[in-house]
Simulated scan of single mutants.
Amino acid sequence: MSLVQQFIVAFLLITVFGACKSKKYGSEEGYIVVKEQGSFAVGGTVVTAAGKFDPIADGAFNPDNQSSAGQTLHGDHAFVVYQKPVHAHHLPLVFWHGYGQSMRTWQTTPDGREGFQDIFLRRGFDVYNLDQPRRGNAGRSTKPMHITASPDDQLWFGIFRLGIGTEFYKGVQFSKDPKVLDQFFRQIVPDTGPIDFEVNTNAVSALFDKIGEGILVTHSHSGGQGWMTAVKNGKIKGIVAYEPGSNFIFPDNEVPEPIPYVGGVLKGLGYPMAEFKKLTKIPIVIYYGDYIPEQPVSNPGEEQWRGALIMAKRWRDVVNKHGGDVTLIQLPEVGLKGNTHFPMSDLNNIEVANLMSKWLKEKGLDR
C-alpha cells in the first residue's frame, strides 16, 4: 500500500471514529449518527366502488368527469418518518402533532434550531414522527371535505399563546423576527377530510402494532386521542402530553361537571371502568406552558387553556385515585417562563426536553 493510500485509510478511520465519538453522549452538538431511516404508511382502509373498471370507457381518465366504477381508493392511513440511532434505548418515541399541524411540529423550529425529533435522536431514542390520517402527507381521505381559505393567522397567534393580534406577550420564548413568524404560520395545514377519532386512533394503534412497545408523545388535540389509543393498545408504555386540550377520559360514573369558558364548554368523556383502568397501568406526564390565566378572562384564546388546565388537574386526580401515575407540570412553576402552546419548539426547547428526559429516566423508560 502506497503512502498516499495509507494516508487516505487513516483519514477515513479518524473521520468515522470521530463521528461516532463526537462530543459526549447526549450532546446537542456534533454529528448525529443514524443507522437506519425511512418512511411508510400505516393503518387506513380501502374503498372499492361498485361496477367494473373499463380503461377505455369515456371518463375513465378524464379528471373532470371521472368514472369510479370498479376502482379503489386507499386512504385514512397515517404517514410516518422514522430514524434510528446507533445504540438506541429499548423503547422508541412516537411523536403525534396537534390540531392544524403536521409532523413539522417536532422537526426544525421556526427559527432554525433542532426540534424534538433531532434532540431525542441525539439522546439515543428511535424516533417515529407521524402525520395523522387526513392531514399533511397522509392527506388521502375516504370522506370528502370542503377546504376553505379564510385568513385566520391572528386567531391562531392567540390560541397558540404567542400574544394578542400581532403583539407578542412580554417575555415570550419565541423569536420576534418577522421571518420566524412567517415560518411558523406556514406550518399550519388543513384537514383534507372530517376529523375522525376512530380513524386516527386506529392508525396510531396500527403503528404500535408494527413497531412494538414504545412511548407516545402528544401535543394539544392529539392528547385526548392519545388516551384513547392507549386504551386500545397495551404496547404504549408511557405517555408524554404537551398541552392536551380536550377529550379527557373518566370512568362513566365520575365524569366531572363541564367547564364553561368564554367561547365554549369543555366536557370530559365517560368510559367503562375496565377501559379507563388501562390508563392507570402506565406512567403519564402532562406539561403546560405560560400565559394561562388563573381566573376567567374575556379573551377566548387564553380562556380555553384555563379550562383545559382545570380539566387536566381533575383528570390527574381521578386517574391517580384509581392507582395511576399521572404527573402534571406547569412550566412557569418549575422555572421555565414564557413558553407558548408549542414548548417543543420555543427558544428554550432544550430545557423543556431536559424535563422530559428526566421524567423518562425516573420512570425507567429510557433503559
Rank of each mutant, 00 (worst) to 15 (best):
D111C: 05
E302Y: 00
Y128Q: 04
L13N: 10
W156L: 13
I286Q: 02
D317K: 10
R306A: 12
F160I: 05
P194A: 14
W227R: 06
E254S: 10
D252A: 14
F11M: 11
P144T: 05
I8V: 09
T218Q: 05
A78Q: 05
T15Q: 07
G238V: 02
F174I: 07
K232H: 10
N65I: 04
K232N: 11
K278M: 12
I350V: 15
V172H: 00
L91H: 02
G238A: 14
Y169W: 13
D325F: 02
E36H: 11
T72C: 07
Q5R: 15
I282L: 13
G124N: 06
T105L: 05
L73K: 06
K237Y: 04
V217S: 00
G245R: 01
N320W: 06
G70K: 08
L328G: 05
H219D: 03
E213N: 14
A138H: 02
Q117W: 02
A206K: 06
F125R: 10
H74K: 06
I147S: 08
H322N: 11
V265L: 12
L266F: 00
K278L: 11
F160D: 12
N339A: 13
Y261F: 15
P144L: 09
A78H: 02
R122N: 08
V94Q: 01
D177Q: 10
E351S: 15
G70P: 06
K337C: 08
